[in-house]
Design a protein around this nucleic acid. Sequence first.
DNA 1: CGAATAGTTGAATAGTTGTTCAACCGTTAT
DNA 2: ATAACGGTTGAACAACTATTCAACTATTCG
Lengths: 122, 122
Amino acid sequence: MENIKQDILPECELHEEHLDLIERGRARLPETTELYDLSDFFKVFGDSTRLGILFAIDGAPMCVCDIAAVLGMTKSAVSHQLKVLRQNRLVKYNKVGKNVFYELSDDHVRDIIEKALEHIEE
Amino acid sequence: MENIKQDILPECELHEEHLDLIERGRARLPETTELYDLSDFFKVFGDSTRLGILFAIDGAPMCVCDIAAVLGMTKSAVSHQLKVLRQNRLVKYNKVGKNVFYELSDDHVRDIIEKALEHIEE
DNA sequence: CGAATAGTTGAATAGTTGTTCAACCGTTAT
DNA sequence: ATAACGGTTGAACAACTATTCAACTATTCG
């Protein structure tokens, strides 16, 4: 999902103390793939439509049409975003007749959003 | 940062039960502006370079050049992303001679990243 | 002073992303 | 069977975003 950029020569003069800081900084850095997984995860929450969907279905499962009505959007747009949420396992669904009811896949999702809300209100 | 889409007519047939579901869904939905603030906040974390910076400076303040060396990127690219982190008050800095040392603005940032890491490892 | 280094910035470009539109599939009801 | 509805999908387009490049500021040092 993103390009890899590694092992480019630093452009600044590297005194001993800085070399030490760089060494320590590298040690704190997670694996590249983990960094990408993490940013991809946050990207899912970085869209107001997807957040809206998560809030809407939090507590009561809803079908696509009703989610679209709640958000004031087309079924298609909502369905596209539900696909993203599905792929990241943030929602689960079950079909009932012509309807597909979506709900939060677990309470973990709620936690993450609440933590962020806390930070914002300050 | 995003377009507003509201009060579009729902396209699906609205039986009474669905009207009730929609009503409840709307009640759970936060204010539009709050939804945008929240998604904007997550967007900041939705980039591996910015996450890398946050991990790198977590624990020890670092100057731009050293951050660039840790990540294997140019100073310019790092500086651009530091600006985003500054604007969202996730980092603070102080100048020492020619260097600008950046550090995490508070422990809240750490918490949020850890919560997400928990969710991913599963 | 002038040269060198650290950092910032704006414009340009390439890549990504969200919504729309139209076509499609599956289920239900006539 | 066929029409109608709920939902999904792929292509296209517009808007956005991250990196690069070059130019710039500020500070230090000779």
